[in-house]
Design a protein around this nucleic acid. Structure first.
Lengths: 128, 128
DNA sequence: TGAGACTGATGTTTTTTAACCGCATTAAGA
DNA sequence: TCTTAATGCGGTTAAAAAACATCAGTCTCA
């Protein structure tokens, strides 16, 4: 396996992100589910809107996540350059009960079609 | 490769250790050189005694390092249970110039026989 | 076109926490 | 008593969280 080398300072920024529970839980959900909106994360994690937005801004600023707009939603995702190190480090903690529970909440909300991705208008004939 | 699973809280403690430069540099030296004393680390890293001692206490408290006494020195080393995750995460940052420079300083001091391990009395006939 | 609803960002303030540092002293061994 | 290491103290800085209000962009629908 060829590893991408990162600088000490970028590494420290990543580890700082991983040293607070809210951010670890957000990153874990993004790693497992590709992309989520702020309101999805609020719902799954039971965070306030402000708190969720602030932590995502932190992660974005640290160079770990990116965002794209779809209709009125903004989806957040792990940036490609951070994928590998995040994946590797999560291998050690992925069995944690809190993280597993978060993912279960995700699945329940998803099957109830309460997440943003379920509400995107996919009708190709929708009005412009 | 079989991974040891760690809890989220232990993981966060580890990442907090890795999010400050002095501690990363200490851990890097311990990973590469098995064990070192406080005075060795002071010398290599150009830290004060207090600073070095405090960070080692932090790492010990976080469950990352242990210590053993040999004569008048106390040698610090990475605990076995932390070896793997530390090793894996350092794979990403091991090419960092600061860390490489630290290790070079280590080698110079070692070849000058200025480190504690070079001063241990290995004479089996030494007085009790 | 305009009103209102929804999604998200941001300014502000307050509180709390913790991490850093150095100086000086103390403790433990040889 | 010398060396090695730990710690009490004090000051500074940072950052994290939380709550609240406000603002901005987009969509819907009349």
């Amino acid at each position: 396996m060829r590893l991408k080398n990162i600088s000490l300072s970028y590494g420290m920024r990543i580890f700082k992100c991983l040293s607070e529970e809210p951010r670890v839980r957000i990153l874990h959900l993004l790693l497992q589910n590709k992309e989520l909106t702020i309101s999805d994360l609020e719902l799954i994690l039971d965070f306030t809107q402000t708190k969720t937005s602030r932590h995502l801004a932190y992660l974005k600023n640290a160079g770990l996540v990116g965002s794209r707009r779809v209709d009125q939603w903004i989806f957040y995702y792990l940036l490609e350059e951070a994928q590998e190190i995040i994946l590797q480090t999560f291998k050690f903690i992925q069995k944690d009960v809190h993280l597993i529970r978060d993912q279960e909440v995700y699945r329940i909300l998803d099957s109830n079609r309460e997440l943003a991705k379920n509400k995107i208008d996919t009708n190709p004939y929708r009005s412009e």
